[in-house]
Simulated assay, not measured.
Amino acid sequence: MCTITDFISEPEEQQLHEEIEPYMSRLRYEFDHWDDAIHGFRETERKKWFPKNREVLERVRQVAFDGAVMPYVHILELAPDGVIKPHVDSTRVGP
């Protein structure tokens, strides 16, 4: 694992949040997950992004996924008391 400090700037983080928050805020937090790995979460996948956010996500794709084609971005938000338990992700999650 590699940590890159300030890879996404605060303004970039804010613009990503501004794009997804209107949709995410309409979702309910879920407490049942198919493999019992997550409790207190809401999630979605998104394919189309505003141009300024596409640039940020392309940078993430190049560095984190070695440029692999990943048409959807998985968005997961935890409730204040939400948890992700130790688990092995499904193979469909990514490379």
Score class of each variant (00 low, 15 high):
1 M>T: 03
1 M>F: 09
2 C>D: 11
2 C>M: 15
4 I>N: 08
4 I>L: 10
4 I>R: 13
6 D>S: 14
8 I>Q: 03
9 S>P: 05
10 E>I: 12
10 E>D: 12
10 E>R: 11
11 P>G: 04
11 P>W: 02
11 P>K: 11
12 E>D: 13
13 E>H: 15
13 E>L: 14
14 Q>T: 06
16 L>T: 00
17 H>K: 12
18 E>K: 03
20 I>C: 03
22 P>S: 08
22 P>I: 05
23 Y>W: 11
25 S>Y: 12
25 S>N: 14
26 R>M: 03
26 R>T: 10
26 R>H: 10
27 L>S: 14
28 R>E: 15
28 R>M: 13
29 Y>E: 10
32 D>K: 05
33 H>M: 06
33 H>Q: 06
34 W>N: 03
35 D>C: 15
36 D>S: 14
37 A>L: 13
37 A>I: 11
38 I>L: 07
39 H>T: 13
39 H>K: 08
39 H>P: 08
39 H>D: 13
39 H>S: 14
39 H>A: 11
40 G>F: 07
41 F>W: 07
42 R>S: 10
42 R>G: 12
42 R>E: 11
43 E>R: 08
43 E>G: 03
43 E>N: 10
44 T>Q: 10
45 E>V: 14
46 R>F: 00
46 R>N: 02
47 K>G: 01
48 K>M: 01
48 K>G: 00
48 K>S: 05
48 K>H: 05
49 W>L: 05
50 F>L: 08
50 F>R: 04
50 F>V: 02
50 F>I: 03
51 P>E: 09
52 K>T: 06
53 N>S: 06
53 N>F: 04
54 R>N: 00
54 R>F: 01
55 E>F: 00
58 E>V: 05
61 R>Y: 01
61 R>D: 00
61 R>G: 00
63 V>W: 02
63 V>T: 04
64 A>H: 05
67 G>F: 12
69 V>S: 03
71 P>M: 01
72 Y>L: 04
73 V>P: 00
73 V>N: 01
74 H>F: 11
74 H>S: 06
74 H>W: 08
75 I>E: 01
75 I>A: 01
76 L>Q: 10
76 L>R: 07
77 E>K: 08
77 E>W: 07
77 E>V: 07
79 A>I: 07
79 A>G: 09
79 A>Q: 06
80 P>I: 12
80 P>R: 02
81 D>V: 03
81 D>Y: 14
84 I>R: 06
84 I>Q: 01
85 K>T: 12
85 K>Y: 13
86 P>C: 07
86 P>Q: 10
86 P>K: 14
88 V>H: 12
89 D>G: 09
90 S>P: 05
90 S>Y: 13
91 T>E: 09
91 T>R: 11
91 T>Q: 09
92 R>K: 09
92 R>Y: 14
93 V>A: 09
93 V>N: 04
93 V>D: 08
94 G>E: 10
94 G>T: 14
94 G>C: 13
95 P>S: 07
95 P>Y: 04
95 P>V: 10
